[in-house]
Nucleic acid binder design. Structure first.
Lengths: 128, 128
DNA sequence: TTCTCTGCAAATAATTTGCACCCAT
DNA sequence: ATGGGTGCAAATTATTTGCAGAGAA
C-alpha cells in the first residue's frame, strides 16, 4: 500500500505544521475547513493516523480526552497544562537512558522514553 | 460534601489495591463484580473519580484509549507497553527538576513531572 | 432523618467503519 | 484503469449524567 498525496492530506499536513501547536483532530478540522469546506472530520482522523504511521507527524501519548498530534517528529519532551490540557514543547536536552537498571525494566524491551512536565499555563493562571 | 465509605467504594478500593496493577474502569468492574454482582459500571467510574480526588488512589496521565488508575499514590514513574498498553511501575529514583531552565518553562507554574518509559512487555514479545 | 450514593438507562464525546463514488498515479 | 482516498452516515467505545429509590451517618 503506497501513500497518495491528496489535496486533503496536503492541507492537513500544512495546517498542522503551520499551527506550531499540538492540535487534536477536531481543532485541526476547524482550521482545515477554512481552506477546504467540504472536508470530512473522518478524513482528518484517517489522515492523522496515516501521517503519523508514515512518520510525517507524531502522535502524542500524553493523556487527556483527545489524541493530539505533533508537527515536530524529532524526539523532544513536553510540558502540558493540567487545567486546559494544552501542550507545549520543552526545550531541554535529553539524557540517555542507558541508566535504567536491568531490574527496573521488568522484562520489557525499551523503545524510548519521555519526560512530561505538568503545570499551569500562563493563560490559566490569569483566569484564576 | 463528605465521603461515605459504602460497601461498593470499599470493594473497589480493595480490589484495585489487591490487583497491584494499573487497571481501567471496566477491568476493575469485572473483578469487583465477582464479589458484588449487581454493582454498576457507572458506580465504578464515579468512585474511581472520587477516590482519586480524595487522594486514595491516583489517576494516571498516560495515554491510551482508557483512563487507568494506580493503587500507589506515592510519586513514581511508569513503563508501559506500546502494544497492549499495559502499565507497570518503574523502580528508579527520581532526580530533582530544579534543573528546568527558566526559558524552558514557557511561563508555566510547574506542579510536577513524570518519566514514562515505553517498550514492549514480556507477554507481547512472546506473541510475535 | 438527611443527604450522599447507587443502579439503570439514556445521553455525550471521541473515534472508527461500511459503502459507493472519486481521483492520484 | 486501478486501487487507495473521500464524504457521509451509522456504528463503536469510553465515559458521564438524570432520576428515583437505597442506605450510611
Amino acid at each position: 500500500m503506497q501513500l497518495r498525496m491528496t489535496n486533503q492530506r496536503e492541507i492537513i499536513l500544512r495546517e498542522l505544521r503551520k499551527s506550531r501547536q499540538h492540535l487534536s483532530a477536531d481543532e485541526l478540522y476547524e482550521r482545515v475547513k477554512k481552506t477546504m469546506p467540504r472536508i470530512s472530520l473522518a478524513t482528518v482522523y484517517r489522515n492523522l493516523e496515516i501521517l503519523s504511521e508514515a512518520g510525517l507527524i507524531a502522535k502524542l501519548e500524553i493523556s487527556g480526552r483527545q489524541k493530539r498530534f505533533d508537527y515536530d517528529v524529532v524526539d523532544h519532551d513536553h510540558i502540558y497544562c493540567v487545567v486546559c490540557h494544552r501542550i507545549d514543547n520543552l526545550e531541554m536536552k535529553r539524557q540517555s537512558f542507558e541508566e535504567i537498571p536491568d531490574d527496573s525494566r521488568r522484562g520489557y524491551s525499551i523503545t524510548g522514553y519521555r519526560v512530561e512536565v505538568a503545570g499551569i499555563c500562563p493563560e490559566c493562571k490569569k483566569k484564576k
